[in-house]
């Protein structure tokens, strides 16, 4: 007690930038700002869902991805608001006040375990949920799937259909020319009926579509937002994936991996149409 009044014991230097009395006014402003930003984030997100948001889903597995996303969004949204508002409240409430001291309290094993275990439990649930959806997307394609090959190059998408025989002909990089962009082997009879088109992919509705994805030069990424499909095309690999379109219409194929100076313009067209219409169109291409 005597030490408090002893002038020599005061190590405070000449310049004290922070008179303790300033605490409360600034606390109010800071706390309210943090709270307003958090509520603003919530409000703008709700507004954005009406205008700048995921395009309507157009594939079977896409609906599952959306469900997963919304589940995670509700969880993280709740945690976001709780934590930000707690922060705002503490900042607002616990500004410095002359003559009082903070609580000298710095350890509580029970609390620490509580906020280790609760996030862990939530994350186990999220991991399990996410893992199940991921596994279902990556099951083997059904045997009756419609098959197509997509080859990416700077800056377009080559589409190849196997033709009436249902089998792709052999290709070789050494055979690639301007007229033969995929390097089809003219000696292979299976390749005679293959159909090759640029930036024009047509697939049937309500039937699994199996894609063999390749790249000639650098890495690209096959992205159709409405289908919730994104898969990198990697040179040297043929990557297989499948999806089932559920909505007829025209969609854009975007490149989602930086692939050079024309990356932003690497746009293809995906048309989802009825199986009959597709058959008729394919037959036309064969001639």
């Amino acid at each position: 007690m005597q030490a408090e009044t002893r002038p020599g014991a005061d190590p405070r230097p000449a310049a004290d930038p922070q008179p303790e009395a300033e605490g409360r006014g600034w606390g109010l402003i800071t706390g309210v700002t943090v709270a307003l930003l958090a509520l603003g984030a919530l409000f703008t997100t709700l507004l954005a869902t009406g205008r700048w948001w995921l395009p309507p889903v157009a594939s079977a597995h896409g609906a599952e991805i959306d469900r997963l996303f919304y589940t995670i969004l509700v969880i993280i949204g709740t945690v976001f608001l709780l934590v930000q508002l707690t922060l705002a409240y503490f900042v607002l409430r616990f500004g410095s006040r002359p003559g009082t001291r903070a609580l000298h309290w710095h350890d509580n094993r029970r609390l620490e375990l509580l906020w280790t275990i609760i996030p862990a439990v939530i994350l186990v649930a999220l991991t399990t949920m996410g893992g199940l959806v991921w596994a279902r997307i990556h099951t083997a394609p059904p045997p009756d799937a419609f098959t197509v090959e997509v080859t990416a190059e700077q800056f377009g998408w080559w589409v190849r259909y196997p033709g009436p025989d249902g089998v792709f002909g052999r290709t070789g990089p050494g055979l690639i020319t301007r007229q033969n962009p995929l390097g089809l082997d003219p000696g292979d009879p299976l390749g005679g009926d293959d159909v090759v088109l640029l930036n024009d992919l047509r697939v049937p509705v309500e039937r699994p579509v199996r894609v063999f994805l390749r790249a000639k030069d650098v890495i690209h990424s096959f992205f159709v937002p409405e289908l919730r499909v994104k898969q990198d095309a990697v040179p040297g690999r043929t990557i297989e994936f499948w999806f089932t379109p559920t909505v007829r219409g025209e969609f854009e194929i975007a490149c989602a991996e930086l692939c050079g100076v024309g990356h932003f313009g690497m746009r293809g067209k995906l048309t989802v149409l009825s199986p009959d219409a597709l058959e008729a169109w394919l037959a036309e291409q064969g001639h």
């Binding site: 900042v91 410095s96 609580l103 309290w105 620490e112 280790t116 996030p119 994350l123």
Partner: peptide, 25 residues
Amino acid sequence: LIIAVPSAVKTFNWLATLWRARIRF
């Protein structure tokens, strides 16, 4: 997702540091 656990621990400890503090702004 596991790495989120220690990150959450840190966040809650920062919040607990502010509880009944005497903040100088």
